[in-house]
Amino acid sequence: MSTLEVKDLHVSIEGKNILKGVNLKLATGEIHAIMGPNGTGKSTLSEAIMGNPAYKVDQGEILLDGENILDLPVDERARAGLFLAMQYPAEIPGVTNAEFIRGAINARRAEDNPISVRNFLKKLDKTMSFLDMTEEMADRYLNEGFSGGEKKRNEILQLMMIEPKFAILDEIDSGLDIDALKVVSKGVNEMRGQDFGSLIITHYQRLLNYIVPDVVHVMMDGRIVAQGGPELAKQLEDEGYAGLRDELGLDIKLTDEDA
């Protein structure tokens, strides 16, 4: 079993404090959801865990299997077993999807032992058909000209090909229609098992109907303010974030709340 632990994490962007002491622990075999209103630092948490250089960690630790990974650059964190399905994946013209994924897989293997082309293609074909992706998606340039839904599907494709220990899904449901949402969820559920843990970041409860989490965390104003089982998500759906905030007696302004 592997663990991913966030301890008292403070993060700022361009001098502005976003995370103000986040604590979180997750093990393989578990799926956690982080819910919260817009602008509370959910994406910041995922980028900080992954190691985006634009985010500055001011305090705290991120431990993977007990080892602090804060000093590791993003590629080493990825090879250590982290994966982030991004909200806005970068487009890279001239590099095909297939050669990129193969490069990513081989980066995890010994230099003299790359995945054979045959095995790679077999796995790629299987996974793509599982995700209802057309074959030509393999030969298209990485994310270039992809629709929003295609990009999200492509993130899940990479997830299933790379098979990390922990996957963070940052608003994977945003901008998806119901069919695409089902496909994406199918992918994540397929990964579910003793060797895989996931942190699902979402604003809406809808996604959690398809991927049922073991634990739900609610984040507001840079902190985790509540924790519970799947029923917490349902409660949020009914009462809204403002309701929960008032129940907890928190003095926080929500950005999407009318002034």
Binding site: M50, G51, N52, P53, P73, V74, D75, A78, R79, F83, L84, M86, P89, A90, I92, F100, G103, A104, A107, R108, Q158, I162
Partner: peptide, 8 residues
């Protein structure tokens, strides 16, 4: 960053 986040 994107490519490196995949371990490259």
């Amino acid at each position: 960053y994107y490519l490196m986040s995949r371990g490259i």
